Simulated assay, not measured.
Amino acid sequence: MQVETHARSVLKAVSWRTLATLTTALIVFVFTGEFALALTVGVLEVFAKMALYVFHERAWQKIRWGKQDVPSFVLWFTGLPASGKKAVADGVYRKLTATGIKVERLDSHDVRHLFPKLGFTPEEVDRHVRRAGHLCSMLEKNGVSVVASFVSPYRESRDFARQLAGNFIEVYMRSTVEACEQRDTKGHYRKARAGEYRFFPGVDVPYEDPVGAEVVIDIDNVSEEQAIETIWRYLKRHYLNAI
């Protein structure tokens, strides 16, 4: 996805203003035949329209009509390992970024890097998810929406994160263990079954399915693009209708 840089936008504005001024000067010259007058009118037009533009923008900034707040939210992806959380979350994040709203992306690995000694026992995973919930809620309270993807296998931990947030959207990437194992290109499931990993959700510890998730994606039956579009429609209907 391509986005326009600030430098490109400025250059486009300058080129358009130059073209418009030259057009005005040319019209004056055609009707009067006086080059000096045409040049003077062109220069005056530049400054007059710049001043009028500033006044126009400031006047509209004071008018509340037509303005609508876009509420911040926490979009929390949960599901078994290799259920497609990261790929779909990344896709939704890119679409949100393109709208211009303030949004941050948090993945489980990002937070774990801050706490390298944190393990994977149920107690440690619970602390990990609660920390992530606190971080998400702090960003949300400061007007920044968050796209978060965490296995977050325990319902109590997810409910804790929900209670902290003002607008919490749980996205359940529903998939079977067998399908996730087929997607697992890194061999995590194989290592868990061989005993190299302990406390692996779906193998030797349970993954507690969400109850009442706002969005449920049956990822075994839809493509990533379809999943992204389903979530996007939900966001547009409930949070982004002003965009």
Score class of each variant (00 low, 15 high):
Thr5Lys: 14
His6Ala: 14
Ala7Leu: 13
Ala7Pro: 00
Arg8Glu: 15
Ser9Asn: 07
Lys12Met: 08
Ser15Asp: 11
Arg17Ser: 15
Thr23Pro: 01
Ile27Asn: 13
Gly33Glu: 05
Phe35Cys: 03
Phe35His: 08
Ala36Asp: 09
Leu37Glu: 13
Ala38His: 06
Leu39Gln: 01
Thr40Ser: 12
Leu44Met: 15
Glu45Asp: 12
Met50Leu: 13
Met50Asp: 12
Leu52Ala: 11
Val54Glu: 12
His56Leu: 13
Arg58Leu: 11
Ala59Arg: 11
Gln61Glu: 15
Gln68Met: 12
Val70His: 10
Pro71Ile: 03
Phe73Ala: 02
Phe73His: 02
Phe77Asp: 06
Gly79Ser: 06
Gly84Pro: 11
Gly84His: 10
Ala87Cys: 04
Ala87Phe: 05
Tyr93Ala: 10
Lys95Met: 11
Leu96Ala: 07
Thr99Asp: 02
Ile101Met: 14
Glu104Lys: 13
Leu106Lys: 05
Asp107Trp: 00
Asp107Phe: 04
Asp107Ser: 11
Ser108Val: 03
Ser108Ala: 15
Val111Gln: 01
Arg112Ile: 02
Leu114Tyr: 01
Glu124His: 03
His128Thr: 03
Arg131Asp: 05
Ala132Asp: 02
Ala132His: 00
Gly133Arg: 04
His134Ser: 04
Ser137Glu: 07
Leu139Ala: 12
Leu139Gly: 00
Gly143Ser: 06
Ala148Pro: 01
Ser149Val: 04
Phe150His: 01
Phe150Ile: 01
Ser152Tyr: 04
Pro153Asn: 00
Ala161Tyr: 01
Gln163Tyr: 06
Leu164Asp: 05
Ala165His: 05
Asn167Met: 01
Asn167Cys: 02
Glu170Lys: 05
Glu170Ser: 02
Val171Cys: 06
Tyr172Pro: 00
Arg174Ala: 10
Ser175Met: 07
Ala179Trp: 01
Thr185Asp: 10
Tyr189Cys: 10
Arg193Gln: 08
Ala194Leu: 11
Gly195Arg: 08
Arg198His: 13
Phe199Lys: 06
Gly202Tyr: 01
Val203Trp: 03
Val205Pro: 00
Pro206Val: 10
Pro210Asp: 08
Val211Thr: 12
Val211Ile: 14
Ala213Ser: 15
Glu214Asn: 10
Val216Cys: 06
Asp218Tyr: 10
Asp218Leu: 13
Ile219Gly: 01
Ile219Asn: 13
Asp220Trp: 03
Asn221Phe: 10
Val222Ser: 00
Ser223Leu: 01
Glu225Ile: 00
Ile228Cys: 10
Ile231Pro: 03
Arg233Thr: 12
Tyr239Ile: 12
Leu240Asp: 03
